[in-house]
Design a protein around this nucleic acid. Structure first.
Lengths: 142, 142
DNA sequence: GCAATATATTTAACATGTTAATGATTGCGA
DNA sequence: TCGCAATCATTAACATGTTAAATATATTGC
């Protein structure tokens, strides 16, 4: 019978720790703008892809729809994003970034790029790419 | 000036997705016992290390103390863990697993080991170890 | 031995994660 | 065209994540 792996080498715990480590400097940056990491992700995705339907946004941002609904609502309140309805098909609401949201992206882009580069340098470009590739291979576990 | 990386190759998002993928089968297993993944982590750590002080438990389980306080309280209600106070130093409360908690570990150990093996096989042992090593290198970002 | 300090834990408050239930809208078939 | 199914989104309810404030206990300095 297979043995339970030691929690010291547990992949779930390692993934949690890694995320915590990676996000710490990003959170520090975002706290000055009063943004959460999830709100930042929404802005980044909308900046990159333009207006998106909720389900598409959720896929790109790795958010569950119920969470995203709340997040987008609060971001709309703050004027960071806007909802727009399709003329004929009312199901197809799209969410888009506002000028205010865009300004936040612009203000933080340099610092965010610096943090990303720092992580990449810490691992080395080769190991960094390897990491992304292996993480990607964890899709479709049965 | 450095460029923001595409969100498609963003490490934070990749880590979130990976965790989601890895936890899905584990959550399915735990739902039958009515446990959350965090409660399972607490049991696993206490099984492996014996009674621990809150801060030690939190480090091993990758939980923040405020979350852990609530989790342990609800687990104590259900009889899965117990708190015991140190004789002389009342700060040093320790948390330990109960027989009921131990039984849940035993009931799920085989299935959990199977899931872990499946993930390892999906990547291959070599890449699996590489993944853990690289994730570990993300400690101490500045 | 007492006040001040240091450390560890818990509470509080709000945001997000997660699953299940509800609601809204379109398209299809009788 | 009416109702029914399918799909997508939101709401609801509870658990956890996160930061800051409050609490508790022991230790230190005097």
């Amino acid at each position: 019978m297979k043995q339970l792996p030691s929690t010291q080498r547990s992949l779930p715990i390692a993934l949690i720790r890694a995320r915590e480590n990676v996000m710490t400097p990003i959170r520090q940056m975002l706290s000055e703008s009063g943004l959460t990491e999830q709100q930042w992700r929404v802005l980044r995705i909308l900046d990159e892809h333009g207006a998106l339907e909720p389900s598409q946004l959720a896929k790109h941002a790795a958010l569950l729809l119920p969470s995203q609904t709340r997040i987008v609502q609060s971001m709309a309140q703050k004027g960071l994003v806007e909802r727009r309805e399709h003329r004929n098909d009312r199901r197809r609401t799209v969410i888009e970034i506002t000028d205010v949201g865009q300004a936040i992206i612009n203000d933080n882009a340099a610092k965010a790029a610096e943090i990303a580069a720092q992580i990449r340098d810490k691992l080395g470009p080769r190991r960094f790419e390897t990491l992304l590739d292996i993480l990607d291979d964890l899709r479709d576990l049965e």
